[in-house]
């Protein structure tokens, strides 16, 4: 489903170059739910953006369903994101002037699905947002916002969800709801890559890795890519 092969990324800041990713490799199959934990600035979000085709790594390859994400065209990458990947962010990134329904429907802008409305209705129902369907994000609680973002991520039936601190702004109850949804998604055959600094959140994942200074332990360039076939709770 998702393979990262020895990817590295360096940012040049005011204080000199910062190596955000340093030879990271991993592999994620259908049904996998991998949590990557680590402190702020350790490169988790950079890893997620690179995996999602939004940030080209300096070296290494990102393969999604055996397609090298950064060797295909910009258009092809957009389409692949639209059809295959769902994103969930800590800050929700809902479009402020669109209702819950329209926010959930937003991915249909990229694909123009005929059944988008039906699918959006199902997701809104499933995430308990039916009574809020026509509300703006500013009228929602944080939990409702994240559930809206989750519903949006699932509209196009993605096979991979990349979640960046999805529970970071939520209370424990809402955090649990979101993590359960992600676990359900993985259980239904999808793949989830969750980056978080919350150990409790990582508990919902099948596997968990700790990241530090842009490295995943045991995934340096020189070592084989780990196969996530066992729970690795640190």
């Amino acid at each position: 489903m998702l393979i990262l092969e020895n990817i590295s990324k360096t940012f040049v800041g005011a204080d000199g170059p910062v190596r955000a990713l340093d030879g990271v490799s991993l592999k994620l199959d259908r049904g996998d739910f991998l949590a990557i934990r680590g402190p702020s600035g350790c490169g988790k979000s950079t890893l997620l953006l690179s995996a999602g085709g939004l940030l080209r790594p300096d070296t290494g390859r990102v393969l999604i369903e055996n397609q090298d994400l950064y060797s295909i065209s910009h258009e092809g990458r957009c389409r692949l994101r639209a059809t295959t990947i769902g994103f969930v962010f800590q800050r929700f990134h809902l479009v402020p002037y669109l209702s819950v329904l329209d926010n959930v429907l937003a991915p249909s802008l990229a694909l123009g699905r005929n059944d988008a409305h039906r699918r959006a209705g199902e997701l809104i129902e499933r995430f308990g947002l039916a009574s809020r369907m026509h509300h703006l994000p500013s009228q929602l609680s944080t939990g409702e916002r994240q559930r809206t973002a989750l519903a949006r991520a699932m509209l196009n039936n993605p096979r991979l969800i990349l979640a960046d601190e999805p529970t970071g702004n939520l209370d424990p109850d809402n955090g649990t709801i979101v993590l359960k949804c992600l676990a359900d998604f993985a259980a239904s055959g999808g793949a989830v890559l969750l980056v978080t600094h919350d150990p409790d959140a990582a508990n919902f994942a099948k596997q968990s890795l700790s990241m530090a200074a842009g490295r995943l332990p045991g995934t340096a360039a020189e070592v084989p890519v780990p196969r996530m076939d066992t729970n690795v709770h640190e």
Binding site: L54, C78, R79, A82, H93, V95
Partner: peptide
Amino acid sequence: GSEIGILRAIGVRSVQ
């Protein structure tokens, strides 16, 4: 900015 970022992330093309 955030809106553009998320729209691009969910596959909306830059020409759109």
